[in-house]
């Protein structure tokens, strides 16, 4: 079975969420891989949310806000842009490939852009392959499972370190 990326999207209520509604009303068809979480403003999106989405199994995270200058809350999207520029650097330093986290400005009138962005992101993340952080966490922690079982067994004798 081919790999189907899981993308978590945070869309601001006034622009990108509305654009996604418009895409629906216009019956545009796009990849079913995105799960949208609605926030009032992209400025509500805490970098913790992005990291948490990756940690819980997202292969990509898409953040959608109003175009610069168009924020329903005047300047929320600039705040988003600034903090997400730094988050981008941190994700890169943590080994998360470019393209897994994306910030897009999509206005309420741009239903088409929702479609294009989602399809493009799904294609790119599919090419990158699964991120699967939960799987990685499990894999990483294998090295401490064996010993835990051994120490907590009722007859702990000398532990064989060499494995």
């Amino acid at each position: 079975m081919s790999f189907e990326p899981k993308i978590v999207a945070f869309f601001c209520n006034w622009c990108t969420y509305t654009a996604a509604d418009l895409a629906g009303v216009s019956r545009l068809k796009y990849a079913p891989n995105v799960r949208v979480i609605r926030v009032m403003c992209s400025g509500r999106v805490d970098p913790q949310f992005v990291m948490d989405a990756f940690a819980k199994g997202a292969d990509g995270v898409l953040l959608g806000g109003c175009h610069p200058g168009d924020c329903h809350y005047a300047e929320g999207n600039y705040k988003t842009l600034r903090r997400m520029r730094m988050l981008n650097r941190m994700l890169k330093d943590m080994g998360i490939e470019d393209g897994r986290f994306r910030l897009e400005w999509i206005s309420g009138a741009e239903g088409e852009k929702v479609k294009v962005t989602v399809n493009d992101m799904v294609a790119k993340v599919r090419a990158l392959g699964p991120l699967d952080m939960p799987g990685k966490f499990k894999e990483w922690d294998k090295e401490i499972e064996e010993l835990e079982a051994h120490v907590n067994s009722d007859a702990p004798t000398e532990v064989a370190h060499a494995r």
Partner: peptide
């Protein structure tokens, strides 16, 4: 993540290029 969310939200520049110039002041974010 939370520190980044707070301090960088309100840096002066608005353009990506200028934002990046400010972020360059922190060579080792992690």
């Amino acid at each position: 993540a939370k520190f980044v969310s707070s301090v960088f939200s309100n840096i002066v520049p608005k353009e990506e290029k200028d934002i990046d110039a400010v972020l360059d002041g922190i060579p080792d974010p992690i």
